[in-house]
């Protein structure tokens, strides 16, 4: 097997005496969707922050295969390099769109920002790409100049996706992207994420407490509890034939996953 795009080894992070993340190993590669599931407080959001380089682990490391093919420890990247990576080769779709978008800036400006950040200085091209991406996430072109503060929850999440994917990232992290949305809006968003991640061959790490979301989107799943990954494997195998007592509890607690 080739080197994974991103791999974490023995990631550990404690807040005081509480281990938010304990010895987590995982990896993900292009075209693969990995779901991290668990209830709130299980450490899945901490894990995502560690993977994104937003938090420094107490021990362990996150390695990423750069575009030149070399694998680098994120801790060895300077802040400038890390941030460039984040806004070009990575995407991060937040649970709260207000953290992932500029609410007072138009939809087009939100999508165009990463392009401008990469040095694009041609208004026409930026706008063209913004319109193209709004179309791909099913936002009408007529809304390009409206700020996301005027958008519905589902549209905001779709706009976040467009804003993240416009630079052609290889890895996208998603933190509960569908929570708080109506069921029908959720379905549309999930379908969009599924389609785009397959079309673009993205590596996706999605944190969710919703097993139905994990089943629909992910190839593999990691179940977290108290900071540890207690079970991992093929998504359908873990959900249909869960081995660990906690996973069985989790699966049996949902109406229909």
């Amino acid at each position: 097997m080739s080197t994974p795009l991103l791999s974490a080894e023995n990631l550990t992070k404690a807040y005081g005496s509480r281990l938010a993340c304990a010895g987590v190993d995982l990896d993900v590669t292009e075209g693969e969707v990995l779901a991290i599931v668990g209830e709130s407080g299980s450490g899945k959001s901490t894990l995502l922050s560690l993977l994104a380089g937003e938090l420094a682990p107490d021990s362990g490391c996150v390695r990423y295969r750069m575009r030149d093919g070399r694998s680098r420890d994120l801790a060895d990247l300077g802040p400038a390099e890390l941030r460039r990576l984040m806004r070009t080769d990575w995407g991060f779709v937040r649970q709260d769109a207000r953290q992932g978008l500029r609410m007072a800036v138009s939809a087009g400006g939100n999508v165009g920002e990463r392009l401008m950040g990469m040095g694009e200085r041609h208004y026409g091209r930026i706008r063209g790409q913004a319109l193209d991406w709004l179309g791909r996430v099913e936002i009408e072109a007529g809304r390009v100049d409206d700020p996301p503060s005027q958008f519905s929850g589902g549209m905001r999440q779709r706009l976040q996706i467009a804003r993240n994917l416009v630079t052609g990232p290889r890895l996208v992290l998603m933190d509960e992207p569908t929570s708080g949305l109506d069921v029908s809006v959720q379905a549309r968003l999930l379908d969009l994420i599924r389609r785009l991640s397959a079309e673009l061959g993205l590596a996706v790490i999605i944190v969710t407490h919703d097993l139905a979301v994990a089943r629909l989107l992910s190839h593999r799943i990691a179940v977290m509890r108290a900071g540890r990954v207690i079970e991992t494997g093929l998504t359908d195998r873990v959900l249909d034939d869960p081995e660990h007592a906690y996973t069985q509890l989790l699966v049996s607690s949902v109406l229909a996953a």
């Binding site: 941030r83 806004r87 500029r102 800036v105 138009s106 087009g108 400006g109 165009g112 920002e113 990463r114 392009l115 401008m116 950040g117 990469m118 200085r121 208004y123 930026i126 706008r127 390009v144 100049d145």
Partner: peptide, 14 residues
């Protein structure tokens, strides 16, 4: 990181 600065100008033109 001055991409955001151009966002302001982009908003103007749009």
């Amino acid at each position: 990181e001055y991409g955001a600065m151009h966002v302001k100008l982009y908003e103007d033109i749009s």
